[in-house]
Design a protein around this nucleic acid. Structure first.
Lengths: 228, 228
DNA sequence: ACCTGAACACCGTTCAAGT
DNA sequence: ACCTGAACACCGTTCAAGT
């Protein structure tokens, strides 16, 4: 939605708000208070305005979030991508993750389909192009992109939920229930790992997993490179 | 939370509600009206009761959802798992997906950490055990489990969001914006695929992706099998 | 054109009171 | 022990009205 601020002469009263001001305030709210505090009412209050005034600049809350992602992706430094297609696929996938890692709350919104924000389309283009150069067919390349996207989205969703719950300080009760159920005769592997579970699962394994997934996806292509 | 229905003599007034009745009603609501209509108030109304009466049987809404997952996982037929470790890892991962595919709305809740509902712990046990039998070390096996879990969670999250938006009938506006941005000179691969994008991405590629991921994860183990 | 106020139709949860 | 009613502190969004 483009704001109704059309420059058709000098009629009407001058705007006090702007999309830019709204997005800046929203980003500050997000950074300082967390996504759970970003509501239209709270945001309006931050701008000394009313919730409804915001609807002159964004169609609804979803669009507000998408605009925030767009802004974020635009500001994000676009890394130089390696020439080697496998390395390029890895680097582009990593960029996808890194851009979203700073606003994982957005995943819920843009998870509605498989295309990204306009400002991040260069990533998708590069992922698919690199996959094709690795020897995948066009359809296979799209499917490879989607597998990586699902992995990324899952990792980010789980990450944001973890911090959300950890902010609540207390361990979720169902975790304790699960650990209590870990009898060595029924669940020998889990029981033997239980003591180190938190330690093991705290490690950031995103990159490792990404490499494994990419190699698994590319192994179907017979390792051919350079072919379009 | 166990309900306060302690059988300590026959004092007090007889309960009209029960956790069972609440869960059954909640499941029906979920099936018939969708997860977005499951609220404590709506559920109470369904039971001709008040929202607060429910809080005698569940600690909060999160626990209600977890109990629903537990019930669902219990009822889910436990498939016979193949002996071959790679096949077993695949089958258990598939079971993880299939159980959750029927209630993907739960992913948000249990995504808070990496352990599952108690009734689905056999899946995690088998995934980790099979990974170890494939030649991974215990820590590597846990990490492999987590990679698969992220992929599964992402796939399910995106799926539920897709149907949620498709229920709203109209295509999300940012999709059209993204497609409009697909100029052939800037995004040659995407532009050439744009016409078939929906067709390509509609395909259910969960299984294929899973196989690729598992193979990618296991390729690090040198193909050793049978070792603990 | 830009913004406000009141209202609609909701949430989850707490708390004191009733039977 | 079990349940209710009122209240608290919120949501996103619509609509008619004001300047």
């Amino acid at each position: 939605m483009t704001p109704q601020t059309r420059r058709t002469g000098r009629t009407g009263r001058p705007p006090r708000l702007s999309q830019e001001a709204i997005l800046t305030a929203a980003q500050r709210l997000l950074d300082e208070e967390g996504p759970e505090h970003l509501s239209m009412r709270r945001l309006a209050q931050e701008l000394s305005s009313t919730a409804m005034a915001l609807y002159h600049y964004v169609r609804d809350k979803d669009e507000l979030l998408l605009l925030l992602l767009e802004r974020h992706a635009q500001r994000f430094p676009r890394p130089a991508l390696p020439a080697d297609p496998r390395e390029r696929l890895l680097a582009a996938s990593q960029a996808l993750h890194d851009i979203l890692a700073e606003c994982p709350w957005i995943v819920e919104v843009l998870a509605s389909d498989d295309l990204m924000a306009v400002s991040a389309l260069w990533i998708v283009e590069n992922m698919i192009d690199a996959a094709i150069q690795c020897g995948l067919g066009p359809d296979e390349a799209v499917y490879a992109y989607r597998v990586i996207w699902y992995y990324t989205a899952g990792e980010l969703t789980i990450r944001v939920n973890r911090v959300r719950h950890h902010a609540g300080l207390e361990r979720p009760p169902h975790r304790d229930k699960a650990f209590a159920a870990l009898t060595p005769d029924e669940f020998p592997r889990l029981a033997s790992l239980a003591g180190r579970w938190d330690e093991i699962t705290t490690r950031d394994t995103h990159r490792e997993g990404l490499v494994a997934i990419v190699d698994g996806l590319l192994s179907r292509a017979g390792g051919a490179r350079g072919a379009t």
